[in-house]
Design a binder for these strands. Structure first.
Length: 213
DNA sequence: ACATTAAGTGATT
DNA sequence: AATCACTTAATGT
């Protein structure tokens, strides 16, 4: 168990106070997980919260089709904030956690979490800090998704417009489109340029010709 | 010729 | 993706 101690200290020693570390050693369950294992799956009941000692875990969302989307990665010294919210809210897991590498972690029983929140300052700030960074990563992911979908939205918008008009030429400005799609003119200009390079449309002033209908 | 508006670009957050 | 700053091109008066 001294190996476990060393890793716990080196991963969380600078974050958590000594007394808390002792409690973690007492109550936490040390686990080793091999690569590509599902640690937590969608709809799993959450009974413990993982603290990562070594390795990396990816947190995924899954849609109806089983398509996966990586939300973010957890590394040494991290914990899963979504799991945290599940622990506190007593709901089932809304995400899937898969080990990206071989992973060593400590499972903290769900019940201890709330206790420590009031008992240890360092625990409280660790949780808040971790929540904060996870939310940021999540927002970043959302931005990326939105970015990837904007070109599709734009093309659909153009096709719809051509359909309604019964004309493959659309008479409008980039600014107008940007307002319709609730984005900025610059973004539209760039995406249109991209579509033109892909040969899907032909651009000219105040008009766009849709080639791929 | 000058002003206005549309569109393109690079850099930054 | 959004915003800024700036350039270039097209049009109107």
């Amino acid at each position: 168990m001294s190996d476990f101690n060393t890793k716990l200290i080196s991963s969380f020693g600078y974050l958590l106070e000594g007394e808390l570390l002792k409690e973690i050693q007492e109550v936490g369950v040390y686990k080793t997980i091999s690569k590509n294992e599902i640690i937590i799956d969608v709809d799993d009941a959450i009974k413990a919260m993982p603290l990562l000692l070594t390795g990396a875990i990816k947190i995924l969302r899954e849609d109806e089709n089983g398509d996966e989307l990586v939300l973010y990665y957890l590394e040494r010294g991290d914990t899963c904030a979504i799991t945290l919210s599940c622990c506190l809210g007593q709901t089932k897991s809304k995400i899937r956690a898969v080990s990206e590498t071989e992973v060593e972690l400590v499972m903290i029983p769900k019940q201890k979490m709330a206790d420590w929140l009031s008992a240890y300052n360092s625990w409280q700030s660790f949780i808040l800090q971790s929540y904060h960074s996870r939310v940021n990563e999540l927002l970043e992911a959302v931005d990326t998704i939105a970015f990837l979908k904007m070109d599709e939205r734009l093309f659909k918008y153009l096709k719809d417009k051509a359909m309604v008009t019964g004309n493959d030429a659309i008479y409008t400005t980039h600014k107008q489109i940007s307002e319709d799609l609730h984005t900025s003119r610059v973004v539209i200009s760039r995406l249109l340029k991209k579509l033109e390079n892909e040969g899907k449309i032909k651009l000219s002033r105040n008009s766009i010709k849709v080639i791929e209908l």
